[in-house]
Design a protein around this nucleic acid. Sequence first.
DNA 1: GCTATTTTTTAACAAATGTAAAAGGTGCGC
DNA 2: GCGCACCTTTTACATTTGTTAAAAAATAGC
Lengths: 187, 187
Amino acid sequence: MHQPLKNIEIFTSLSDAAFAEIARYIRMVSYPKGTLLIHADKVEPYFYILQSGIARAYSDGENQQITFWFGESGSVLFSFNSYINNKPGYENIELLEDCTLIQIRLTDLFKLYNANTEIANWGRKMAEHELIATERRLIDRSFKSAAERYQEFAGHSPSLLKRVALKHIASYLGVTQVTLSRIRAEK
Amino acid sequence: MHQPLKNIEIFTSLSDAAFAEIARYIRMVSYPKGTLLIHADKVEPYFYILQSGIARAYSDGENQQITFWFGESGSVLFSFNSYINNKPGYENIELLEDCTLIQIRLTDLFKLYNANTEIANWGRKMAEHELIATERRLIDRSFKSAAERYQEFAGHSPSLLKRVALKHIASYLGVTQVTLSRIRAEK
DNA sequence: GCTATTTTTTAACAAATGTAAAAGGTGCGC
DNA sequence: GCGCACCTTTTACATTTGTTAAAAAATAGC
């Protein structure tokens, strides 16, 4: 039933047996654009893998929202604090387009982690992969100018650039919308 | 032989059996202040846990060094790219004081990950823990002014503030040393 | 304790980015 | 097609931060 899913990138490193284990707990879900899939003030019970569409994670401040993550097809999507600490988190995740997602209950995922070494290492690698990407972005904030960060984003994620509102990209890059507009106006 | 080590925080969640497995591969090492323990341009074969002393990770730019991480007793210390991708990385790790460390060969650590579910999940949690901390720092770069980030650092890590050169703290906070000096001069 | 070296602070000026408000665009429902 | 809501750009000005250089302070080694 879920065999086509075996081909999506995040699962390709898994053996057929391990994938079959996970597949038992998978549910496919679809939600429309604008859905707030993860709420900052709730313990969210699900872990998702994005199949189609795009999403953003953001955090609410006093007078601004900071978008700190974008997800595209293949991205994993969950509340860090629910996942790691079983507490409400700081992140909201909003679907920016109609999306199809693979849904797994966190309690099931943790059972799989504890029961299957291969799946535990798969989860470890997911976290490590996110970690290295996040750390690079943090370092780039210091090394690169806003204009360079924009150019890099545009070169690396042309699809997101087209599909995501610039105000979200601005906060993702760590600048105001006005600054981003100025950067885009030059050259 | 290594029994006192069982009490350091990073190992407390492990069962005695799992810790005993790890302990077989542990070596204690000491290096003087100033040692460059991890080199950006090399594949580094070891994973360390800091027992005493402090360290910093930094990345080299054209005309600046960016310090993006500090380690204290209990911190894990390794080259991300060696650990995750088996390639030279972007990070150097320098000991800022004489240090004692627990050393584990990466090839041994990976064997343990693949052989023991509990240890694989222990590694997963280490990565997740670092990930959440790194992401928070990235978000804080957008939400908080340099002055706020300094106040928070000073409140949260008074020990580092005393022991680490301000120029390193400045780049950790994402500002120049001149700006940090101005922040410290106010109020 | 003294000198050499490094770190930190201060100053003056330049550049980048933020704020607020207005104007222009775009999309969508009616 | 019109009007409304939201997004993006532009403008003018304020503020923050960076740059460069020098002085002052702290530290390390002899």
